[in-house]
Amino acid sequence: MKSIKIKSNGSTSGNIRVAFATSDLENIDSHFGSAKQFAVYEISKESTTVCEIIKIDTKDTDLTVELLKGIDIVYFTNIGAIAAAKIINNGIFPIKYKETVSIEEEIKKLTDMLNTNPPPFIKKIIEKKAA
């Protein structure tokens, strides 16, 4: 397993780090356990930056969770119960979509939420980072 760092602005207050299970870097279209890669973005009220692409070479839930440490939210199309428990226990908020969803559209939703009235789970993430 390896991670390819593309660009990083460093974490600042109010930013959230989000990973998307994706096969094409455009859509949330992969099951957590069989994802070959995760696109990681740093999202704030003002900007969105691609931070890294985490490549998954081996199907190993523990190693995948380890690579995702520092991520606030992870999106996927499905996840097993044990894997879900492991990411939650590592402070990562899971979001499951049954159908393929555009990463760009989801980033727009998150940015809109940050700029208006974020739901409680996002407020909690931001408060945790500010502490």
Results as ranks from 00 to 15, higher is better:
C51I: 12
T48H: 04
K124F: 06
K36C: 04
K96R: 14
K108A: 12
T61W: 13
G33T: 02
G33I: 13
T116P: 03
I71H: 03
K128Q: 05
E46K: 14
I53C: 12
K59A: 12
E26I: 11
D24P: 10
I107F: 06
I73E: 10
K59M: 13
N115K: 14
A19P: 05
H31D: 04
T49H: 10
E127K: 14
I95W: 00
T100E: 12
D62L: 15
V50R: 14
P120V: 11
K124L: 01
T111N: 07
K55V: 13
A84C: 07
S34H: 11
T116Q: 04
L114M: 00
F76H: 09
I43D: 06
I122G: 06
Q37Y: 10
E52K: 13
K36V: 09
A39Y: 09
F38N: 04
K98T: 15
A19C: 09
V40P: 09
T58P: 10
H31M: 00
A35L: 09
I126M: 07
A81S: 15
K108C: 09
T49W: 06
I88W: 05
N90C: 07
E26V: 11
E42Q: 10
C51H: 11
I95P: 05
P94T: 05
V101I: 01
D57A: 12
E26Q: 13
P120Q: 15
I88T: 14
T64L: 11
I122T: 02
N90V: 01
D57F: 09
E127L: 12
F32A: 01
I56S: 07
A81M: 15
K45R: 15
K96H: 02
V101T: 03
L110P: 06
N115Q: 10
Q37P: 03
K59L: 14
K45N: 12
I54K: 08
K123T: 05
L63D: 14
D62C: 07
V65N: 06
T48V: 13
T61R: 04
N89M: 13
D60V: 08
F121P: 02
T100C: 02
F121L: 08
G80L: 07
E66N: 12
Y75H: 07
I103A: 05
C51L: 13
T22Y: 11
A84N: 12
N115D: 05
S44L: 09
T111F: 00
P119L: 04
T48S: 13
F38W: 10
I16C: 02
Y97D: 08
E106D: 09
E42N: 15
L110N: 10
